[in-house]
Design a protein around this nucleic acid. Structure first.
Length: 591
RNA sequence: GGGGUCGUAGCUCAGUUGGUUAGAGUGCCUGCCUGUCACGCAGGAUGUCGCCGGUUCGAGUCCGGUCGGCCCCGCCA
């Protein structure tokens, strides 16, 4: 660096530094060459400082500055000056000063970048990922990584203060049944055997409780080989907790305290726990969804009883066959066009709804609707009353099985909120969802499967139900929902071997299979396992919400594409035949 | 596994009913310019219209296939 040492970063200087001799290093963001004076916006991780080359100060340095181009890496030595009157840039933290350069070192040149770093234009994400190091130089992206760092530090700090131990667990572990598809790693020294990358450290953290660690946490990578979404990556990060001698309330307190620290450290915002709570069944009834977004109302209203004997065959038939008729009231949306309604019908169709009935409420309360004629005045009046319908409102109805009605209407509710701009990014609505069912019936596998995971404790009073009506048993699981996104979930675990056996049996896992797959856990539960419970938070999703982004890829330094590839490294990639042979793998694909 | 959408200059995009030599903004290059901050002015260069095939006198445009990005359903204890 030619003997120069950096004295300040590009965000540090202000009017107090007037007259100081400083050395800055960074990247050329923009060059404004006036023929005489040349201005360079110098950028680093911290910010932006304008540096000035004046032929009257140093003609040789000024001439050299003429050659500078975008993203060249330079060092400048010069004097901090107040900007002339009227030349202060209020948009810039360092906008009151500039550095008058007396010495310029070009530390590295750069080709013209493949996409602009200084503009608002949306660049194709594939290109951003291929040149991720350029993308991450953009201040918005840098800010996301800075926020991620602060978030982790805040949560670590909080948990450390609560006497938790941060303990690492294996990345090479064994595949377990249930749950997502595993990423597998072949064992070279054990032909035909495979490790699995962890979907979560679930069993290890429970075993750490048996080991007496009492309070464990880890900020840990987890792997699930399933298809990707805007909020799902094949590898993602959890803040994983487990505590001994606790009940639900203890977990809520810890999680709320941690969220409070998190929001203070990242957004400078003071949360006011406790967070509201809602049972799973109430959430499903009122919102059709186990992670309702409570930033707005627009609740689902059941018309099932009102229309059971109405003249509209579609509704009547659905009710007679045990289905539901539910409705939502889009307040003030009676001006939606025919196309809007067609679009929304298509929208709900992807969730299985065979139709979307609607009613526009006119002045005086008359119904403009293809289905108005099927109802008596009294029926219309009753429906209007329960829906709180007023002139100008638009009512939507879905009649189908419980599952379809709830999914279609809860998605419609969110779609309407998006269209109506009800999803304020600076509003944060937390909710605990509690009392989940322990099991649900899987029609494909023709057996019950765990809603949460097979180690979740049933409620004490529901244990007997496992023998009679297992679908009715409720669990001691809880989710933390923020703005309609599940950001964390956990449960009080089973700590007795006999209960764990019983749950395995109910899940159709034979004693032999349980012994084969979970022997180590069952054995641990027989050797003094304390009552324990915990939860895990999705760091990426949490940060996506905090940063106001639409995708977790924006808060991950090196994310994968929807096809689970990395455009930067071009992973996954072929390997040498020899590597496969060493792993005892015989490929059947063409090379 | 399925549905939708996009792919044209380095980038962001336009391109009508199939019609001559494919455009804009920006970036890039050159010159001018001493107070800009998305500086300004003048000039210039830049295209495998993702790829393959088909229809046609003629394809960026129509058809079939394929590859890739993104969104969604299924899947994700």
């Amino acid at each position: 660096m030619g003997g120069l040492r950096r004295s300040h970063n590009c965000q540090a200087l202000g009017p107090d530094d007037m007259g100081k001799e400083v050395t800055l290093m960074g990247w050329v963001l923009r060059r404004r060459d006036h023929g005489g004076v040349i201005f360079i916006d110098l950028r680093d991780r911290w910010g932006l400082t304008q540096v000035v080359f004046n032929p009257g100060v140093n003609p040789a340095v000024h001439a050299k500055a003429h050659d500078l181009r975008s993203e060249w890496v330079i060092a400048v030595r010069g004097r901090v000056e107040d900007r002339p009157a009227g030349m202060v840039n209020a948009k810039l933290a360092t906008g009151a000063i500039e550095v008058l350069v007396d010495e310029l070192r070009i530390l590295n040149v750069s080709k013209t970048p493949p996409f602009p770093l200084d503009e608002e234009v949306e660049v194709a994400e594939g290109l951003r990922l291929k040149y991720r190091y350029l993308d991450l130089r953009r201040p918005e992206m840098t800010a996301n990584l800075v926020m991620r760092h602060r978030a982790c530090q805040a949560m670590r700090g909080y948990l450390n203060g609560q006497d938790f131990l941060e303990i690492e667990t294996p990345m090479l572990t064994r595949s377990t049944p249930e749950g997502a598809r595993d990423y597998l790693v072949p064992s070279r020294v054990n032909p035909g055997r495979f490790y699995a990358l962890p979907q979560s450290p679930q069993l290890f953290k429970q075993i750490l409780m048996v080991a007496g660690m009492d309070r464990y946490y880890q900020i840990v990578r987890c792997f699930r080989d399933e298809d990707l979404r805007a909020d799902r990556q094949p590898e993602f990060t959890q803040i994983d907790l487990e505590l001994s001698f606790v009940e639900e309330e203890d977990l809520y307190t810890v999680a709320e305290g941690m969220m409070k620290e998190l929001f203070r450290a990242t957004l400078g915002m003071e949360l006011t726990p406790p967070f509201p709570r809602m049972t799973y069944s109430e959430a499903m009834r009122r919102f059709g969804n186990d992670k309702p977004d409570l930033r707005f109302a627009m609740e689902l209203v059941s018309l099932t009883d009102l229309v059971a004997h109405c003249g509209f065959k579609v509704f009547q038939t659905v009710v007679a066959s045990g289905g539901l008729v539910k409705s939502i009231n889009a307040k003030g949306c009676a001006d939606f066009s025919r196309k809007d309604l067609d679009d929304l019908t298509t929208f709900v169709a992807q969730f299985g709804a065979k139709g979307l009935a609607w009613v526009k409420v006119k002045e005086g309360g008359e119904w403009q609707s293809p289905i108005a004629k099927f109802f008596t005045d009294e029926e219309r009046g009753n429906m209007a009353a329960v829906l709180d319908a007023a002139p100008g409102d638009l009512l939507f109805f879905v009649a189908d099985t419980t599952t379809v009605v709830h999914q279609a209407l809860s998605e419609l509710r969110l779609e309407l909120a998006r269209r109506l701009g009800l999803l304020a990014k600076d509003k944060f609505s937390f909710l605990w969802v509690t009392d989940f069912p322990l099991l649900e019936y899987d029609h494909e596998e023709k057996r019950h499967v765990a809603v949460h995971h097979p180690f979740t404790a049933p409620r004490e009073e529901d244990i007997a139900l496992l023998d009679t009506e297992p679908g009715k048993a409720l669990s001691r699981a809880y989710d933390l929902v923020l703005n309609g996104t599940e950001i964390g979930g956990g449960s009080i675990r089973i700590h007795r071997q006999d209960i764990q056996d019983k749950v395995f049996r109910t899940l159709g896992i034979s004693p032999e299979e349980a012994a084969d797959k979970f022997d180590f856990l069952l054995r641990a539960l027989e050797l003094g396992a304390p009552p324990h419970g915990g939860m895990a938070f999705g760091l990426d999703r949490l940060l996506m919400i905090l940063a106001g982004r639409e995708s977790i890829r924006d808060v991950i330094a090196f994310p994968k594409t929807q096809k689970a590839t990395c455009p930067l490294t071009e992973a996954p990639a072929p390997v040498a035949r020899k590597q496969l042979t060493e792993l005892h793998l015989r490929p059947d694909w063409k090379e």
